[in-house]
Simulated scan of single mutants.
Amino acid sequence: MGYKNWKRMTDQAIVEELGQRIKQRRIHKRYTQKELAERAGVNVNTIQNLEYGKSVTLAVLIQVLRALKDLDHLDAFLPEVEESPLMVMENEAKPLQRVRKPRK
Results as ranks from 00 to 15, higher is better:
Phe77Pro: 00
Leu36Pro: 03
Met87Asp: 11
Tyr52Thr: 07
Met1Asn: 14
Ala67Met: 04
Trp6Phe: 08
Phe77Cys: 02
Gln20Asn: 13
Gly53Ala: 03
Arg66Asn: 12
Lys54Trp: 04
Pro95Arg: 12
Met1Lys: 13
His28Ile: 11
Ser84Pro: 03
Gln97Met: 07
Arg103Val: 08
Gln97Val: 08
Tyr31Val: 02
His73Tyr: 11
Gln20Ser: 12
Asn91Ile: 06
Lys7His: 12
Glu90Leu: 08
Phe77Ser: 03
Arg21Ser: 11
Tyr3Lys: 15
Arg39Trp: 00
Val60Phe: 00
Glu38Arg: 09
Ile14Tyr: 05
Lys104Glu: 15
Arg66Ser: 12
Thr46Gly: 03
Asn91Lys: 09
Lys101Ser: 08
Leu18Ile: 10
Arg39Asn: 05
Ser84Phe: 02
Leu78Asp: 05
Asp11Tyr: 09
Val60Arg: 00
Glu90Lys: 08
Lys94Ile: 15
Glu17Ile: 00
Arg66Gly: 06
Arg30Tyr: 06
Leu36Trp: 03
Met89Arg: 11
Leu78Trp: 11
Pro79Glu: 05
Pro102Asp: 06
Lys94His: 14
Leu71Cys: 14
Met89Ile: 06
Ser84Trp: 00
Ala93Arg: 12
Tyr31Lys: 10
Asn43Gly: 05
Gln12Lys: 09
Lys101His: 11
Lys101Asp: 08
Arg21Pro: 02
Lys69His: 13
Lys34Arg: 10
Lys69Ser: 12
Met89Asn: 07
Asn49Met: 14
Gln97Thr: 08
Val99Cys: 06
Asn49Ala: 12
Phe77Asn: 00
Gln63Pro: 02
Val81Asn: 08
Leu58Tyr: 10
Ile62Trp: 05
Leu18Thr: 02
Gln63Ile: 01
Glu92Gly: 10
Gln33Asn: 03
Ile14Asn: 04
Glu38Cys: 04
Leu78Phe: 12
Arg98Leu: 15
Glu51Lys: 01
Val88Arg: 15
Asp70Ser: 15
Gly53Tyr: 01
Lys29Trp: 02
Ile22Asn: 01
Phe77Glu: 08
Ile14Ser: 09
Gln24Val: 09
Glu35Asn: 05
Leu78His: 12
Arg103Phe: 06
Glu82Leu: 05
Asn91Met: 09
His28Cys: 13
Leu65Ala: 14
Ile14Asp: 04
Leu36Tyr: 05
Lys29Val: 01
Pro95Asn: 10
Glu90Trp: 06
Pro85Trp: 03
Glu16Asp: 05
Leu36Met: 02
Arg103Gly: 07
Lys23Asn: 14
Tyr31Met: 11
Glu16Met: 03
Pro95Met: 02
Met89Ser: 10
Arg98Ala: 15
Arg100Trp: 11
Asp70Gln: 15
Lys101Met: 12
Ala67Leu: 02
Leu65Cys: 06
Asn49Ser: 09
Ala13Gln: 15
Lys69Asp: 14
Leu18Met: 11
Ala67Glu: 00
Ile62Thr: 09
Asn43Thr: 10
Glu51Ile: 01
Glu38Leu: 09
Val88Thr: 15
Ala59Pro: 02
Arg98Gln: 15
Glu92Ser: 11
Trp6His: 04
Gln24Thr: 10
Arg103Gln: 08
Asn91Leu: 10
Met9Ser: 10
Glu80Pro: 13
Glu51His: 01
Arg39Lys: 09
Gly2Asp: 13
Asp75Pro: 01
Leu74Gly: 06
His28Gly: 13
Tyr3Gln: 15
Gly41Gln: 06
Val42Asp: 01
Pro79Met: 03
Met89Cys: 06
Leu36Cys: 05
Leu68Trp: 09
Val81Pro: 00
Leu68Tyr: 04
Asn45Gly: 10
Leu50Arg: 04
Asn43Glu: 11
Val99Lys: 04
Val64Ser: 01
